[in-house]
Design a protein around this nucleic acid. Sequence first.
DNA 1: TATTGTTATACTCTATAACTATA
DNA 2: TATAGTTATAGAGTATAACAATA
Lengths: 154, 154
Amino acid sequence: MKPIVSEAVANTRELNNSVGFSLRRAQLSMYKDFGRFMDPLEVRPSQFAVLMLINTNPGFSQSAISLTLGIQRANFVSMLDELQERGLVERRTSANDRRSFALHLTKQGEDFVKQMRATHAKLEKAIGRRLGVRNTKILLRLLNEFADAAENGI
Amino acid sequence: MKPIVSEAVANTRELNNSVGFSLRRAQLSMYKDFGRFMDPLEVRPSQFAVLMLINTNPGFSQSAISLTLGIQRANFVSMLDELQERGLVERRTSANDRRSFALHLTKQGEDFVKQMRATHAKLEKAIGRRLGVRNTKILLRLLNEFADAAENGI
DNA sequence: TATTGTTATACTCTATAACTATA
DNA sequence: TATAGTTATAGAGTATAACAATA
């Protein structure tokens, strides 16, 4: 029997009925889009999320931010080191609890977030064209409901 | 200023409006569900996809299967080695093209896929309850349309 | 020349245990 | 005792270059 060569693409019909597989497929393509738009800023998806979160929640601790993003606090240390070395984030010591740091954006970090947000808006607009604005909103709502329900143990 | 302790969860409202972030969030929770159901079978999501794909497309080459799943063929080698050592997959040599292997499930592999499929159906049913059957179907359709559009360069 | 499977390598992400300093 | 940040480490996943056998 002749083996099928790489020009042929295998049939994925059954897998496409799996929510997990379809989520992964969609996320994989999204990841590429993210790179296409955000690579010039040299920011990865996880860094984007961290910076946005510190921007919205100044003063939160490393544990709080990393927990919210589902990142182990151990792995969050080197991530923050990098953002700090780039001059975007500050670890402020606190007199109240000297174990933890209060995270803040630097002035440069705030400017960078503005730039990120503008580029990210273009990305969202571009992928919004894929399904149309209406369907993209539905997708967004269903994704968040799905994750919320999972977090609430449903 | 007192740093916010870990009991407080940071505000993710803005990030939840990002398709990419919401996809990642949903996939993260899905990944946990997959483990809850499939861990007893000792099969990871990528292995699940490979076995399902070989089952549906017997005789395809390593390149074809790995390309379809977006896995580098270099990384696919050790993955297949593991599945072969477990006695689930066969690399059959071909007289027509002696460079490549035709991938097939063993009898044991076919039984295992049946077991996987049954467990996976339970998983899909469980997560279907989260959004309801109707909304889950809509989510599935939108996810696949989204990935299809991306693949077609839209 | 080009492709298939392979090895080697490196970088990111993720997960866990254990340490220190504080509470 | 418990928590925040940290270090070290190990396992996955992912990406690239280069090689031998074959087309």
